[in-house]
């Protein structure tokens, strides 16, 4: 079957979709958006969390056909979402179109074995002046906070956590620790022991408050 929906502000279409495919599979394997992760495919880990019409869901448990006509935001569109949110908060714009291209650059199917993260990309990120720059660099505040707080190790849980944490901060800009734990209780992490994830969300909340006070 054919499925059409919007991903990160961009209309997308997938053909020859098997009816049993999940939204996660379509995103990863048909639309070239592998940022949402396939850790359990049974709704027990949150690695595949995306926003479906604004609501965080496990994309592994959404049948592809159920996404028809809906709006999906994945980790690839998080920076753009944050930017639009910031603009909206600042009283401008509301067009909702994907302008930054953050959702498109990694969206094209790769035409050869994509191999591994390229060495030069790592090297760019490795420069202290780059990686320690706060805020900018085309990242959503929650993404930057995860890097800064050391909340990323293997990183496989990271995309889902980012989508969930970003949505929580949108609803609840000043969460208590218990609020953070509850909001992220659907996202498993096996590397960090969660402490630095807590730090990252606190950091993002604090930066967000600082930004708002400015």
């Amino acid at each position: 079957m054919r499925v059409s929906f919007t991903v990160n502000g961009r209309p997308q279409e997938a053909d020859d979709v098997w009816e049993g495919e999940s939204l996660l599979y379509v995103l990863r394997e048909r639309l070239g958006l592998p940022g949402s992760k396939n850790a359990c495919e049974q709704g027990e880990c949150g690695s595949c969390t995306v926003r479906l019409d604004g609501v965080p869901v496990c994309s592994c448990l959404v049948a592809a056909g159920q996404a028809e006509g809906r709006e999906v935001v994945t980790v690839e569109g998080l920076a753009d979402l944050a930017e639009r949110r910031a603009r909206r908060c600042a009283g401008g714009d509301g067009s909702g179109s994907c302008a930054s291209g953050a959702c498109g650059t990694s969206g094209a199917p790769l035409d050869e074995a994509p191999g591994v993260p390229a060495g030069d990309a790592w090297s760019r990120a490795a420069r202290p002046q780059d990686s320690q720059a706060g805020g900018g660099g085309g990242l959503a505040p929650i993404q930057q906070a995860f890097i800064d707080a050391g909340a990323v190790q293997c990183g496989f849980c990271t995309p889902g956590l980012l989508v969930a944490a970003d949505e929580m901060l949108e609803r609840n800009p000043d969460p208590s620790d218990a609020d953070i734990r509850e909001a992220l209780s659907g996202n498993l992490c096996r590397c960090t022991g969660y402490e630095k994830i807590m730090d990252a969300v606190r950091l993002a909340a604090a930066r967000q408050a600082e930004e708002a006070a400015r």
């Binding site: 949150g46 609501v55 869901v57 209780s185 659907g186």
Partner: peptide
């Protein structure tokens, strides 16, 4: 389950 499941 989890917040994500409770949303669906």
């Amino acid at each position: 389950a989890s917040p994500q499941i409770r949303n669906r």
